[in-house]
Design a binder for these strands. Structure first.
Lengths: 249, 249
DNA sequence: TATCCATTTTGATTCAAATCAATCAAAGCA
DNA sequence: TGCTTTGATTGATTTGAATCAAAATGGATA
């Protein structure tokens, strides 16, 4: 249901340490490029930026100029409703690309807020488009990234449209688990960066309902919850919890 | 909330009659291109295809080769769940582009089914990518179309995550209304092409709930419902029904 | 360390939508 | 023409999540 967002980008965790000073290799973009092409692309990824926990990477309504590749850290994207409350549209981690929604109107359509200290690379979009003209594989790859975002969103739509609270939470946890695994972390034990309220906002539930769903899964010995620390005791049964819903394979 | 999908493509209704034999001008792509560029693009849009009501434009799992631009007609896209039931992910009409989700894996991730007789133009994707290298404005436009699909999906996610049944239906009707208006049809009176069940599937509701929401809006004299025929009596009040939710402007 | 604030958990109650069920209307077919 | 099927409406009941409310926990800081 929640499609594996990590697929947007690629599994770059294994090449992570190969080039400490060069951020580019860690990015989601330079797939299947030769040395020279990577060089060209390197000139595009201009600046590196740090964002403190709680800080904004970009805000709704501001001018769009660059995509952002997350080098490290964890962010949420959310839209602010008139009444002041915010709805979370996604959680994002290392290797993912932010800002795709802003291409349509040249304005950011959501806020991106760091849930922990982050490092991101800024990729000026005009430049990216320009060089993608000369590197077909880069263009194709970029298109796949955008398309995957669409597929992922369809998965979330399905989740919101047809799953119960517990199923949603199971789906959410499995999605996180998968993404941690791909990045070389434990798939069965991790710390949540977001509050119950943020999870609820993302899953279309109230925070109390999220909390109860956590407790329920714990009562069934499927997971162990200690505040933000989550341990998945029975991955198989957690998957069963999602029921007949599609995706998440 | 439901963003105006018509923005994906463009308002091409006004140039519709200018060139009866040439399908290209009716498409969503040739925006701001000069004569020569349109010529080039014209070579790409190879075949025109007709699909009968109930027929498939494409099926989940089949190989992706082309995008499809809808010339006329009305389709739904849906994913099939294991249990056999289907979840509708979108309704699509003239001028819209289908198949964007398939770019990611080179396979279609959903079924596209005609809700009435349709005409579509097939746009081989590889060719589109190739010529977009030589026509920057075309590439940029294509990227905007993809990005808008993402923004639209975020709108639906918001709807599914935070709106009540009646608000969802109001949002849905207003979205349709807007899209009909842009295409030169009445914004206040139209025929639905889909069943209550399909609407429900799209909105994350059961068909009975959809039916009740229709009846409720009719009782309040906001709309008049005669089976598939919908008349919007009070557009302003219908907008109010969406409450504090964002979007749909 | 004590205090404060934010977050989380849990319980009781209410409410909206799902479910179950029946009827009705329209469309297609023999 | 009547018969069958599909789709739509409406009512009664159940159920899952929201809401209201209180208590417990954790983390930050003076």
């Amino acid at each position: 249901m929640l499609n594996d967002t990590s697929l947007h980008h690629l599994d770059i965790s294994h090449i992570r340490s190969s080039c400490a000073s060069c951020s580019l290799r860690e990015l989601c973009l330079p797939v299947g490029l030769n040395e020279q092409e990577i060089q060209v692309l390197g000139d595009v990824v201009s600046s590196k930026r740090k964002i403190q926990r709680g800080g904004y990477l970009h805000r709704t309504g501001t001018k769009f100029q660059s995509l952002f590749a997350i080098r490290s850290g964890f962010l949420k994207t959310c839209v602010l409703e008139e009444d002041g409350r915010q709805q979370v549209t996604g959680f994002h981690m290392t290797g993912e690309l932010l800002g795709l929604d802003a291409i349509s109107t040249d304005m950011h359509t959501c806020d991106a807020i760091a849930l922990e200290d982050c490092e991101v690379c800024e990729i000026p979009f005009a430049k990216l488009e320009e060089i993608s003209r000369t590197i077909p594989s880069l263009m194709r790859h970029f298109h796949k990234i955008m398309s995957r975002e669409i597929v992922r969103d369809h998965g979330v739509m399905l989740l919101l449209g047809s799953m119960k609270a517990e199923e949603r939470l199971a789906s959410f946890l499995l999605n996180l688990s998968r993404r941690f695994l791909i990045r070389g972390y434990s798939e069965s034990e991790f710390n949540l960066r977001m509050t119950r309220e943020e999870i609820g906002s993302y899953l279309g539930l109230k925070l109390e309902t999220v909390s109860r769903a956590f407790s329920k899964l714990q009562d069934e010995n499927i997971i162990t919850v200690d505040n933000k620390h989550i341990q998945i005791n029975d991955l198989a049964r957690l998957k069963l919890k999602m029921g007949n819903s599609s995706c998440v394979t």
